[in-house]
Design a binder for these strands. Structure first.
Lengths: 141, 141
DNA sequence: CGCAAGTGCTTGCATTTTGCAATCAATGGA
DNA sequence: TCCATTGATTGCAAAATGCAAGCACTTGCG
């Protein structure tokens, strides 16, 4: 079982097979907007992900090349999770989900603020945030 | 059980609670790109959704105001599903998922063509497609 | 009329995934 | 030594999914 077969080669379907669930993109969100990098930090989200699901999703994301896992030099038990370029490139999707929800769902105004600022910043705001993520997660140049 | 409680008021989370699964956006995709409007048409997708899941998702989408259901004048048993503005506004999300998958997943070139054309058409291409969906699904002007 | 094909589903049941609480071994700081 | 912290794992109940069949009804055709 090196590679599972996909239901179809449709781009939408392939994306959904990768992150089409209720948790995966929340982990990415926490890495992008909350600066979370450690297992226990992800566990502490508002949505209360369970540790077994988190463990499963992190392993999947690492296996898919969306996230990398490295040891923390300061603590041998500590793992640091970082976004890859493939992961950082999920930001436009997340930004669109945010935009849609802010139009049609009962969002918390406080939590919606960052998305509103991003929309107000125009197309350059997303690119700027991606550049910042590259700096933090892919190492400075 | 009129309204389930949400896990959090975060825009990303609320979006995922609505369509964060492996099937919902595929139904929307079929309405947007394949012109499907009938139950049996959705059943015939490449990904082979089962009828009970399809039934569940269509009811959810109607309940959420993303899709409407109407009887077909030509056939009393026939139901026509239409996108609402709320549903049509999912197109930018789907377009971004398509873009990401075409960059990082083994997409079928034939199925990727429409997404590539849309990207090549620039920002106006999405708006044009949304306008066309409004014409077909929300009634002509 | 009689009957097959087509309509949107529903029902049972096995399998898989999720949710939740408890637990674990290893580490580091005191 | 003592104990909180680390990234998980385990066991088990509940929910979701997948699959095959079936259902009530309508339409079209002879």
């Amino acid at each position: 079982m090196t590679q599972t077969a996909f239901r179809s080669g449709c781009p939408i379907n392939l994306g959904l097979e990768m992150f089409g669930d209720k948790w995966t993109l929340l982990i990415i969100r926490d890495m992008m907007f909350a600066g979370k990098r450690h297992f226990r930090e992800f566990l502490a989200s508002d949505e209360a992900i369970s540790s077994n699901i988190l463990s499963d999703r992190l392993a999947m994301l690492v296996g898919a090349g969306i996230v990398t896992r490295a040891g923390d030099p300061s603590h041998k038990l500590k793992a640091i999770y970082s976004l890859t370029e493939k992961g950082i490139d999920l930001l436009p999707i997340i930004a669109q989900i945010s935009r849609w929800s802010r139009s049609y769902m009962p969002v918390d105004p406080v939590l919606a603020a960052t998305g509103e600022a991003r929309d107000k910043g125009g197309p350059g705001a997303i690119e700027a945030q991606m550049a910042e993520l590259r700096r933090v997660h892919l190492g400075e140049g």
